[in-house]
């Protein structure tokens, strides 16, 4: 029982970046962005390929993050400029990225076991790698959470939040909401790709299928987090997303310990999200339903 805590913490904090990215699109921008399933492995693919080809891990990770920004921005262009339905825009980008990721990697899987990664210094320490890795992911998650909190309180950030809250109003106040949406999607997917790059290095390989179900897992994290921490402010929203991610991974680890097959995880997570979304509808609480923005 106790030994599932380190692994849940490590995974939960690593995937917290994904939950933060999804919170930014679904909750703040009210844009249900499905690019995530493609931008997560994109980050892994770019980082793995560059590291495999001999680039240093820090630069590789940064380039992977930038690639995620571009992917998200393009989804935004599909939706705002080409007027493609936002869900379809994300699905299109996700599908396109599947081929792109295979192109980048040149095959379905790149092992990184014998390559220097961001985690190599931690492995050379004279101790178990668990603790330094957990601290590393904790710091990254906190920095990202804090950066989003600050960003959403800047002049530009206020306009971004209003884009998701009352688009007509903020346009009349001079914000090009299309541009704000594109940028927000870029930032969100940059964070998701960063998560992909870090997790690929942590687990020692990048796989083209590693993004499947990422959105649903992220949504589950957010729903759990918001049930525990009411997201009345931006600071609480991002905290809920990050904390929810840790709790979600803990629940998953617990489920597996109790005999849940790894192949059933997505079924379990999907059902969890459906139930969470169904409860207010079944109870007939319309207001509560409206609060689940983007879903």
């Amino acid at each position: 029982m106790l030994n599932i805590i380190p692994i849940s913490l490590e995974q939960g904090l690593a995937y917290a970046l994904v939950a933060l990215g999804i919170a930014l699109t679904f909750r703040v921008l009210a844009f249900p962005d499905l690019t995530v399933d493609g931008s997560f492995p994109l980050g892994g693919a770019v980082a793995a390929r560059l590291i495999f080809d001999g680039m240093d891990p820090v630069t590789s990770t940064l380039i992977a993050t930038a690639a995620g920004f571009v992917a998200g921005y393009l989804t935004g262009i599909f939706a705002t400029k080409f007027k493609i339905n936002s869900l379809l825009a994300g699905i299109l980008m996700m599908t396109i990225l599947y081929s792109v990721n295979l192109r980048i990697m040149g095959r379905a899987n790149i092992p990184l076991l014998n390559q220097p990664t961001l985690f190599t210094p931690m492995e050379s320490l004279n101790m178990s790698r668990d603790l330094p890795v957990i601290i590393f992911f904790l710091v990254i998650a906190l920095v990202c959470k804090f950066a989003i909190d600050v960003f959403l309180h800047t002049e530009y950030g206020l306009g971004l939040r209003a884009t998701g809250d009352n688009e007509e109003m903020i346009r009349s106040l001079g914000v090009n909401t299309d541009a704000a949406t594109n940028f927000g999607l870029g930032v969100s997917n940059a964070m998701v790709a960063l998560a992909g790059a870090l997790i690929a290095q942590d687990q020692g390989f990048s796989d083209v299928g590693m993004g499947i179900g990422m959105i649903v897992a992220g949504l589950a994290s957010i729903i759990i987090g918001e049930a525990l921490i009411k997201p009345t402010t931006v600071v609480r929203l991002t905290l809920a997303a990050a904390f929810g991610s840790v709790v979600y991974r803990f629940i998953i680890a617990l489920g597996m310990r109790m005999g849940l097959a790894p192949t059933d995880l997505k079924l379990a997570t999907g059902v969890m999200v459906v139930i969470a979304l169904a409860i207010p509808a079944i109870r007939g609480q319309r207001e509560k339903k409206l609060n689940l923005r983007g879903m």
Partner: peptide, 15 residues
């Protein structure tokens, strides 16, 4: 704050 910034450039300064 958003209204005060109507029609102005919005930067990364604190709102």
């Amino acid at each position: 704050c958003m209204a005060e910034l109507r029609g102005k450039r919005r930067g990364l300064k604190w709102g």
